[in-house]
Design a protein around this nucleic acid. Structure first.
Lengths: 257, 257
DNA sequence: GCATCATTGATACAGTCGTATCAAGCAACC
DNA sequence: GGTTGCTTGATACGACTGTATCAATGATGC
């Protein structure tokens, strides 16, 4: 409901332009606006005493950059209610910013989704590295292997949410080339890592099992653990069941000590 | 744009009720409408000669029931552009029916999605059975096993589309209990089937491999082949690569003949 | 001729969506 | 003081969504 009888400029009282779209004008010119601003700034300066220790980038440090903050809202919504619930307005509200801010920092919804996926990959890798660094015995190759594969299972709320967001994005990427490119470009070959670990463990253990192909074992392990994780999300399997299956296969592949 | 000056009843010319919503009235009463209908029916009867051989359920037989026809439209859209593109109007257009027909047969959009998923499961099982029946040598247990697992790979356009629809529904089911229930209820335990085949093949072959657990092998095989199929959809793997991996594991599990 | 049934046609409504537009806020430079 | 640039607030627009409403269609039975 636009004000039907507009008053004049707040500073000089001159009549205002009657823009029918966008924010209603309050000043007659840029100069009057600047004048009003300087008045406010002066009042603040006198009231707030000396400038004191002003934190210059306060909001930046208390939760990452603005983009990061908004991207996290996307993940949160996608994990809780699915990507189709992540509208611009919902994301803005969840991030505690206005719709305009989301528009400004990401340009379009598509830009937002792509950027959020990009940041998600980085975030997940950061967290994975942190968990790997916290391993009890980094020389225990079987434990390392288990930890790598465990990154794809909903073992805690963090990974559970990450997996939900991941599959939501995966499905969308099937019909969105830009998202698919982020997936294919960012995802490093975990299979290579797993195959290397298997090879190392075989060399360290008794000997290379006859006829065992680390690459093929890694391929099925990685894709299998992803599928098993999805089943857990779905409620089709229990985490304990998956653990048992995984232990069986690790026992099978790795040489007994 | 509603007609501003309504004319009278088509039959008796009496003034019409001025309903502001819904379809505009043309007759003043139900009786006048019936009268008009009988006139048309009489004209048709005289023009079309004897009643001839009227196909009573003609539209039913030329492509399944109405519900089936609409559900197929849902699958088509979901496979090509994702489930979020499957609006009521899009589905109706793709099925060649009116929006109202979709509303009538499924009640709500949610009802449509649930029913379409239900019918999809039936359809996929039908097709899988048909392909299994066409196997060259049904006694070749390894071939049977490969065919069962192959149902989850995008080996042709049909299965490719089925897989795309499947994952789209899977993701949505994570936030939709009704869909999740359809998934959990309809999906029969393929793992059991695979485990049974492995056991049979072991018994028929040389002997049961030492320390081999058919259940655990089946678990990783089924979830793994699903994940590999998703990678193929994504373009992260080639079908040939998946075939090689699968052959390796079948060789590993099944006793050499 | 009339009532009734399941089905379909023709709208209408209230809301949400992504996006666009214009102006204010704030700070720096001239 | 005036201008410029980046950021944000306050709307507005048009398209689309799911759903609801009322009537017509075609057929059957009384």
């Amino acid at each position: 409901m636009r004000d039907e009888n507009p008053v004049g400029c707040r500073v000089c009282g001159a009549p205002l332009a009657t823009a029918v779209r966008g924010r209603p004008p309050v000043y007659c010119s840029r100069g009057c606006q600047a004048k009003a601003y300087r008045r406010r700034a002066g009042a603040r300066g006198r009231a707030a005493a000396p400038p004191a220790a002003t934190e210059p980038t306060a909001p930046r440090t208390e939760g990452g950059s603005r983009r990061q903050q908004i991207a996290e809202a996307v993940w949160r919504i996608a994990a809780e209610r699915g990507l189709e619930a992540a509208s611009m307005r919902e994301v803005a509200a969840a991030a505690g910013v206005s719709l305009r801010v989301v528009q400004y920092h990401f340009g379009s919804k598509h830009g937002l989704l792509v950027a959020a996926l990009h940041l998600l990959h980085e975030e997940n890798e950061r967290r994975a590295r942190a968990r790997m660094a916290r391993l009890a015995d980094p020389a225990d190759l079987r434990a390392v292997l288990g930890a790598v594969l465990g990154e794809f299972l909903p073992l805690d709320e963090q990974r559970r949410r990450a997996l939900r967001v991941f599959v939501a994005y995966y499905v969308r990427s099937l019909n969105d080339p830009a998202l698919a490119e982020v997936f294919l470009h960012d995802a490093q070959p975990v299979e290579r890592l797993v195959a290397g670990l298997i090879r190392q463990a075989c060399a360290a253990g008794g000997g290379p099992a006859p006829g065992l192909d680390p690459e093929r074992e890694a391929d099925l392990l990685v894709s299998g653990v992803t599928g098993l994780g999805m089943d857990v999300l779905h409620g089709r399997r229990t985490l304990a069941d998956v653990r048992t299956t995984l232990d069986y296969h690790l026992d099978r592949i790795l040489p007994a000590r």
